[in-house]
């Protein structure tokens, strides 16, 4: 029973961190209509930034969080217009071209990281690393709690931005219908660049947290890309509300399979779940949109 509770809690805490970048992933799909293969690349880059901030600058891993947002947000802001141009180009299949572009970006990020840093697994150390808290029979690693709290703060901030500001309103309107939003005076091109920047920044922040909980190497990016796809399909592409539920579910499934079966089976279990859900409900569990 203790192990069960322990596993459930671990899964929910991890799911919370996964939720932050999958929300942003969904938002990007809603606005740019691009499934971003590079999502795992941004996660890993965030993790490496966390590592270098601790290893080279001697700072706490948490200090890398705002830095990741600024640095990779800016990078995303520069890449955003390229993606927008490809997606809205007059080529025969712009949606496939955009997918190919993000796949290329992902390959580039992964290859670049392998070349630059090699296949070394790195950890992000924080002042909470190794600390844990006993709540009754359950032992909670503090880093996971902190990561989940950060994740909740980031997600909360994003929701406040989307639902309480004019620009957030414009983003939601654009995600619904970019042609009508443009008629209202929204500069779709600039908005797309901003959203991609926001997404890349948030995803890299989640990467710092992931690096602190697990560890990073250039190969784990694919795993996070698959996570994002799982959440997107389960929640319904573009659904932000569904992403939170689906990410928590993902975290719990992964935790249980790793604990009771073996971690090498976790992806199998995750995609078996996806398969079953799609058989039963082809539109995802919460087809609600933004």
């Amino acid at each position: 029973m203790d192990l069960f509770l322990q596993t459930l809690l671990n899964g929910l805490l991890i799911g919370g961190v996964i939720a932050t970048f999958t929300i942003a992933f969904q938002l990007t799909f809603g606005v740019l209509h691009v499934i971003d293969f590079a999502v795992g690349g941004w996660v890993v880059l965030g993790g490496y930034l966390g590592y270098y901030v601790t290893a080279l600058l001697g700072l706490d891993g948490f200090a890398a969080i705002p830095l990741a947002f600024v640095l990779f947000g800016a990078l995303g802001y520069l890449i955003g217009p390229v993606l927008y141009n490809v997606r809205n180009s007059r080529t025969a299949r712009p949606e496939l071209m955009a997918l190919a572009l993000t796949f290329g970006l992902f390959t580039l990020l992964r290859g670049g990281m392998l070349t630059a840093w090699g296949f070394n697994t790195r950890n992000v150390t924080t002042f909470l690393s190794g600390e844990s808290l006993a709540v009754g029979p359950v032992i909670v690693p503090l880093i996971r709690v902190a990561a989940a709290v950060f994740a909740a703060a980031i997600a909360g901030g994003l929701f406040l931005f989307l639902y309480r500001t004019r620009y957030g309103l414009a983003i939601r309107a654009t995600a619904e219908n970019c042609h009508n939003a443009a008629l209202m005076g929204v500069n779709i091109r600039r908005l797309s660049a901003n959203v991609y920047g926001l997404y890349a920044g948030i995803t890299a922040m989640a990467g710092v947290l992931m690096g602190a909980i697990y560890s990073v190497n250039p190969e784990v990016g694919l795993r996070y890309t698959l996570f994002a796809f799982f959440v997107a399909v389960l929640a319904g592409l573009g659904s932000v509300g569904g992403a939170v539920a689906a990410a928590l579910m993902l975290g719990v499934i992964e935790a249980f399979v790793s604990t009771y079966v073996g971690s090498s089976y976790s992806l199998l279990a995750i995609f078996a779940t996806l398969f079953v859900v799609l058989l039963v409900s082809p539109k995802g569990i919460l087809r609600r949109g933004l």
Partner: peptide
């Protein structure tokens, strides 16, 4: 296109073009 509205010209597309998942007030704010 996003500058045309600033010149004082609004296009109402066929079907009205309201945003169905935004509230009435949010549509008006847009």
């Amino acid at each position: 296109v996003h500058e045309v509205v600033r010149q004082g010209l609004v296009l109402m597309p066929q079907g009205g073009g309201v945003f169905p998942r935004l509230t009435v007030m949010e549509n008006l704010r847009m």
